[in-house]
């Protein structure tokens, strides 16, 4: 069963770009990533799903109901974490969460306490005394306190330290195991890779593809840069899976690699290295790569699964 269905969803803001013709769906129980560079239209899509803004054309359904017509009803079962968290500054965290809970016909007291404890959040502080990261935590508790069936997260990890991110991801995994569907936007690929079953990739307001993470991972790229003591021939790295070799003065070489990591490490071990960097490529590079491979037969998951 599909929890979310977008059908040629389009949102234009006058002249400026919004989203164009987005169609995909998210199945029940899935952790679905929504990935793209800043300004690609991720937030616009999520905000349209929540009918904070209204679509220009096309439609979307959540739990089989139209998001515009049945918004309030749908939202009973949605937990939302915005990318930037803003609350009534003068309220205490406790009161804000109580207020938030009062919108759902449920007793959330215990749950608030549990979540706050796990996220290490001080309930007695005033909102305007909180740091960015702590505000984010309030947002997380606020989004999860009513045990929603669908959790929508817009760039959820910004401001959280790595340890907190870990806890947060564990929380999400637990919710998922309890049956919650999760839709999760991000511009950080590794984050999405860790969590998601499938991802939709969006760029400049258009959906590029919907992929299984496993497929993306097969194409996982490493960006490798080396510095050598003596100049070496860049041709040494002309292995399968190496692209975009660049050499600077013969002793600073960089390239993208996808394939068995051991092969490339063996090759690197043959050289006298002065330094080595292995990075995840940024999204832009992934996209480039995606375009390059476009004509190759791949295991594509159709946009409408």
């Amino acid at each position: 069963m599909n929890v979310i269905e977008l059908n040629q969803l389009t949102k234009r803001y006058g002249q400026s770009r919004g989203i164009e013709d987005i169609t995909f769906s998210v199945k029940e129980g899935e952790i679905f990533g929504f990935i793209g560079p800043n300004g690609a239209g991720k937030s616009t899509t999520l905000r349209t799903l929540l009918s904070i803004i209204y679509p220009t054309s096309g439609s979307a359904t959540i739990f089989g109901k139209d998001v515009v017509k049945h918004g309030p009803e749908i939202k009973k079962q949605i937990g939302y974490l915005p990318s930037e968290v803003f609350y009534y500054d003068k309220m205490k965290v406790k009161d804000l969460l109580k207020y938030s809970a009062s919108f759902y016909k449920k007793d959330c007291k215990k749950r608030i306490r549990e979540l706050a404890e796990r996220m290490d959040l001080d309930l007695n502080k005033r909102i305007d005394d909180l740091s960015y990261g702590n505000r984010k935590k309030v947002g997380i508790v606020q989004g999860l306190l009513h045990e929603p069936k669908l959790i929508i997260l817009d760039e959820p990890t910004g401001g959280l330290d790595p340890l907190m991110q870990q806890t947060f991801f564990e929380l999400l995994k637990e919710e998922n195991q309890k049956g919650a569907t999760i839709l999760f936007s991000s511009h950080i690929l590794s984050e999405v890779q860790k969590m998601c079953d499938r991802v939709a990739i969006i760029k400049e307001g258009k959906l590029i593809t919907v992929e299984k993470i496993s497929t993306l991972q097969e194409r996982n790229h490493k960006k490798i840069r080396i510095e050598t003591r003596v100049p070496v021939d860049a041709g040494l790295f002309a292995l399968d899976g190496v692209t975009k070799i660049e050499s600077e003065a013969g002793n600073r070489i960089s390239f993208l690699y996808s394939g068995d990591i051991n092969l490339i490490m063996r090759r690197l071990a043959e050289i006298q290295l002065a330094n080595l960097w292995v990075d995840e490529p940024d999204l832009e590079e992934i996209f480039l790569h995606y375009y390059e491979k476009e004509d190759v037969q791949d295991e594509h998951v159709p946009a409408r699964a």
Binding site: S51, P72, K75, Y80, F103
Partner: peptide, 17 residues
């Protein structure tokens, strides 16, 4: 302007309410 509208609008209430 306090940017709290998003909080309210994602709650299960109509705008009329």
């Amino acid at each position: 302007s306090g940017k709290t509208a998003e909080f309210l609008l994602t709650k299960p209430v109509t705008r009329g309410r």
